[in-house]
Write a protein that binds this DNA or RNA. Structure first.
Lengths: 189, 189
DNA sequence: TAAAATTTATGATCAAGGACAAAAAAAATT
DNA sequence: AATTTTTTTTGTCCTTGATCATAAATTTTA
């Protein structure tokens, strides 16, 4: 079965009618390695399901060393500059494929239609927003409670696969330190 | 009209039937100044609408100087240890009334019933979760992009009313610094 | 309103992580 | 495989904010 159907079936029971309607709105896109597919100041018009690949969410800076990474998404997850998507205001973030990546996207307008016309749209939308809230909430706790070293150790423990795949310079800014500082943290462990 | 009805009417159009059902689930509670009405490790069983008063969300520590404040809520807003509420796991946070406070609460079980039985429940739930996500997302951006001084100035600009009402020792940990550090920040401005 | 308790401010010292520079290592390209 | 480019590490110095101690100001309580 389709990966995205498998994913959504875990969240809720979707009627064939609703599924067909939703599925008809999806568009498949292939993004080349390192390509930025949402640029800063653009309005995010999509929520995308990653069929394969890895995507990074980040805020660019004049000096590329000072970019800040806010998240990494892997296959079988949804990705979006969700705040820009929700508010339909220019995005502070960029989205970049770290490997060749295939996504299935739905537009803002089409998703609003799904919310209006399907039985299940708002339920899935609520559960998705709740899940994303929980992620941000955990992250806020980490940033305010833990030192950089503790944040690294926690990441190492909870998402070791991430450290295998993602360059350290991205990990460092995700943790909230410079690449140099992360290098020193790793040395003293 | 009821404050809470006015608030929800701004979000969506609610049928009388749905409203009556929801309203029948609400319980009013009055909380004394400084009282903690959700303790750490308790499972948050309520979402509450503040009719009057001010509520603080915080993580307590052995040394009370090291408590961390995560947010302040005022009248006509909903408040909850939302992550504990959503996951129904023990809360890392406490909720404290900073002034005498009156709230209208709905329990977890009753809200699930509202989600199932009303037309509008999941829509309001989705929009609420989305709004809370946006707040956390902004906060994550602030914490990673700005210095303590910049965070204070931003708060001063965006929520000046908050600085009138909330003791600085709570503001400081909300910004992510000690009370001493905030005092020095204020001096040099 | 006087006393006590709490909050805010100030001083001195310390530690974590930033900034800048450069070398070493690893990965990508020719 | 050799060269170029990118990533990671290491060195030195500096800044921000933490920590500990105490004083001043403000608020609460008796």
């Amino acid at each position: 079965m389709q990966q995205i159907k498998t994913y959504l079936d875990q969240i809720a029971t979707i009627s064939d009618l609703d599924w067909d309607f939703f599925y008809s709105k999806l568009q498949r896109r292939v993004i080349k390695k390192k390509a930025v597919f949402l640029k800063i100041n653009e309005i995010e018009n999509h929520i995308s399901f990653i069929e394969s690949g890895v995507v990074r969410l980040f805020i660019p800076k004049e000096d590329p060393e000072k970019e800040i990474t806010f998240g990494f998404s892997f296959k079988n997850q949804f990705i979006s500059a969700y705040d820009s998507f929700l508010t339909q205001k220019p995005s502070a973030y960029q989205l970049q494929a770290l490997t060749e990546t295939t996504i299935l996207s739905i537009t803002y307008a089409d998703l609003q239609e799904v919310y209006q016309k399907t039985q299940i749209g708002n339920l899935i939308g609520r559960l998705t927003a709740e899940r994303l809230f929980l992620i941000k909430s955990k992250r806020e706790q980490n940033l305010l409670n833990l030192s950089a070293e503790e944040r690294y150790l926690k990441l190492f423990k909870e998402r070791p696969e991430l450290l295998q795949v993602i360059p350290l310079k991205y990990i460092s800014s995700y943790i909230g330190v410079t690449a140099q500082a992360l290098s020193r943290i790793r040395k003293r462990i």
